[in-house]
Simulated assay, not measured.
Amino acid sequence: MGEKREGPRVRYSALSTQEDVDNDREFTSKNAHHEDLRYRFELREEIPWKSIALALFLLAFGSLFLVTSHFIFTAHMGGDSSQAYGFLVLGFLLFLPGFYETRIAYYSWRGHKGYSFSRIPAY
């Protein structure tokens, strides 16, 4: 009845001190010439021509479908509104990935910071 219940006993590690930080800096400065090969990763810089061709194809046909849906909606072309919605959906599905990868390829070709051909998947 009068028993006092204790919680679980957990051991905590000591907090780091300034001495630990100084020792760590000393260790890294001594071993700066050694590279940890586990974290080494090289990106290939070859140009993925097939992926860029696919991106241009998607961009061209997506643009064509979007323009076609616009012409059907504005009655410059014959067709039903359900056809226009189909062209609109297909146009967006083709245009968006094509524009995205074409933009990455263009900025990589121009040498903008943060863009490289390795960000485009190679097929």
Rank of each mutant, 00 (worst) to 15 (best):
M1W: 07
P8T: 10
Y12H: 08
S13N: 12
A14R: 15
E19C: 02
D20Y: 01
N23L: 15
D24K: 10
D24L: 14
D24Y: 15
F27N: 09
K30F: 01
N31K: 08
N31E: 07
E35L: 15
E35R: 15
E42H: 13
L43D: 09
R44N: 09
E46C: 04
E46T: 10
P48Q: 09
W49V: 08
A53K: 09
L54G: 05
A55K: 04
L56A: 13
L56E: 04
L58C: 12
A60F: 14
A60P: 11
G62T: 06
S63D: 01
S63G: 11
S63P: 11
V67E: 02
V67S: 03
S69N: 10
H70N: 11
H70R: 07
F71T: 12
F73T: 04
F73V: 12
F73Y: 12
F73N: 00
A75L: 07
A75P: 02
A75N: 01
G78R: 05
G79Y: 00
S82G: 04
A84W: 00
Y85N: 08
G86T: 14
L88T: 10
V89F: 10
G91P: 13
L93H: 02
F95K: 06
L96Q: 02
Y100I: 03
T102C: 09
I104M: 08
A105N: 05
Y106N: 00
W109G: 02
G111F: 14
H112T: 05
K113E: 10
K113C: 12
S116N: 11
F117L: 04
R119K: 14
Y123Q: 10
